[in-house]
Nucleic acid binder design. Structure first.
Lengths: 339, 339
DNA sequence: ATGAAAGCGCTAACAT
DNA sequence: ATGTTAGCGCTTTCAT
């Protein structure tokens, strides 16, 4: 059995409050001599503070919760998730918080499940790319539990952080159009996620803005994962009448498209130009290096976590931050070869 | 202010115990009628259980802690860490636990810091590739706090899980030797980490077992990251008298070596064969596809987490599991070209 | 059947 | 200066 401040107090014949103050160095003064003896006995007894008890009493756990998207069993392995978690961890560490990952993600889709988030174990939570209509953020807003949303809906009462998807897709399409492409396709993200919807919308707008026609066969839902994108990639490339360039919903799908294209004997970028979205760690390692719309995922998450910390501490400025993406040109895009 | 069972009890003029039993469905019987009314009022008051209080009382938090290695600020971004965390999350979810990442990693290197791990917030912790001599595992063993160690020292009193590094390097060297390479180099991992040490040791043994000489210039410490490996890669390749093949401490270093080799005008695998270690997600996407020693990182972590759960629950079998790696041959290795 | 009360380990307000 | 005590929200033993 681990020892407690009570054990220390008994050994020294002092009160628990004295021990508590000695251990914490305040707020009440404790004579140096007593303080030292407390510390000695604490070491001797291998005392370690129970942060659970402290959190219960102080109503502060110093933990930030992360609610992963409800997408797949392997969420935690995607580069987007990883970058986000990394940013959150960095910010948390700086703020003296630890990070709790709510793993029971299958249940967060119901209010029932969302209730489990505000359970005292975290001071606030971060939704990482919640699916559209997920009741979590709305529920937490109702009960006024501190939370921020990354890449989700900009609802009132929630702090939100996301990349400017419209602008991102616009520079992607612009880049391809500048190279001379006219038939440009889009492997779209899931309709169940904000980023998916906005990028698709952005594609339509960017094409329209340039008076570029969109072939009905050229917009196919591909999801956000390699696994889900394969079928769409195959469908897009079958037959000889195909686009000369593709804007993908994210890098993972873009990599898959490269692989599928290669398997079909198409060379990238000579026969097909491909643009990704995210600039995940893979993008530069891949062959060819992927031209992609870079979003500062880790920094977005970092700032979201920082805001959450402020929110927890009471300085509650509502904000909806939009981060500006940038095009990174590598080697998966080229002017179309004259047929 | 969030409502508590006390609020519910007052509203209904029943005792808190009745409410508690009604809410939890036991262990004591509560008349159906009362039970329903409790549930109604609970919903009305937006009651949600405080798991902190429950954990304090029940001495079980249902949280597994992860202690990341003390390596770099960006630990959480490496594919190894990611795979490990993913495995842990999967296992935790299945066991009904959440996952707490202890982010204050700068401090775990001292016993002082290690003490902060057994703070009641987690039922047990998982060390993910702790540095050699890190006092954490030893300390937790002393205070008998449940913990498991992945890719660390096999110390008594701790459950350990790791890949068979010696065997892994042996098949890597064997593969290269079979191809006909004789001058094989090793970009070694850090001496501060178990995997680094064992793989280096494995390299010496595997070479000796095949009567292959090792040039003193051909074993260079490169760390486990792209950042740390670059210098070593450059040093290894400078001059014309260089090895024909290199066994790298892990995939990240191998990818860096490929990049450095390309920058020097060397083609992989024609001019230089490269073997990695891990089979991280990058390995197959990279160009050329990386020949590497695959270790089931996620599964190792998964099983470690499962064992930890059992340990927490009292079935304490000491174990030191060794997982068998496998060679995955892709396109970064080839027989040496006759000079 | 159900209420009262102890106690998990801690902090801090309230004595003295 | 320091001790006593009331909670934080919950579970569970002990009474009734």
């Amino acid at each position: 059995m681990a020892s407690t401040i009570k054990d220390i107090a008994q050994r020294l014949n002092v009160s628990v409050s004295t021990v508590s103050y000695a251990l914490n160095g305040g707020p009440r003064q404790v004579p140096e001599r007593t303080r030292r003896r407390v510390l000695e006995v604490a070491a001797e007894l291998r005392y370690r503070p129970n942060r659970l008890a402290r959190a219960l009493q102080g109503r502060r756990s110093h933990v930030l919760g992360i609610v992963p998207t409800l997408v797949a069993p392997n969420v935690a392995i995607g580069p987007y998730f990883v970058a986000g978690v990394n940013g959150i961890i960095e910010a948390s560490e700086a703020a003296g918080h630890d990070v709790l990952i709510y793993t029971q993600h299958s249940s967060f889709d119901t209010e029932e499940g969302a209730r489990g988030l505000a359970d005292g174990r975290s001071d606030g939570v971060i939704f990482l790319a919640p699916t559209i209509g997920s009741p979590g953020p709305a529920y937490l807003r109702d009960i006024e539990f501190p939370h921020v949303v990354i890449d989700g809906d900009e609802r009132e009462g929630s702090l939100t952080f996301k990349v400017d998807n419209l602008a991102g897709i616009d520079i992607a399409v612009g880049h391809l159009a500048d190279l001379g492409h006219r038939r440009i396709a889009h492997l779209a993200g899931p309709e169940t996620m904000r980023d998916g919807i906005e990028r698709r919308e952005g594609f339509f707008r960017a094409m329209a803005a340039r008076d570029l026609p969109i072939d009905a066969r050229d917009v196919i839902e591909a999801g956000f994962e390699a696994r889900t994108g394969r079928g769409a990639a195959i469908a897009l490339l079958e037959g000889d009448d195909r686009p000369t360039a593709v804007v993908c919903a994210n890098d993972e799908v873009a990599h898959t498209l490269v692989a599928v294209a290669n398997a079909r004997g198409l060379r990238v970028p000579e026969d097909l130009s491909i643009v990704g979205f995210d600039d995940s760690v893979f993008a530069q390692l891949a062959l060819p290096g992927l031209t992609t719309v870079a979003q500062p995922t880790a920094r977005i998450a970092f700032e979201a976590a920082e805001s959450l910390v402020r929110l927890v501490e009471g300085s509650a400025e509502e904000e909806h931050r939009l981060f500006t993406p940038e095009l990174v040109v590598r080697h998966s895009t080229l002017r179309p070869t004259k047929a």
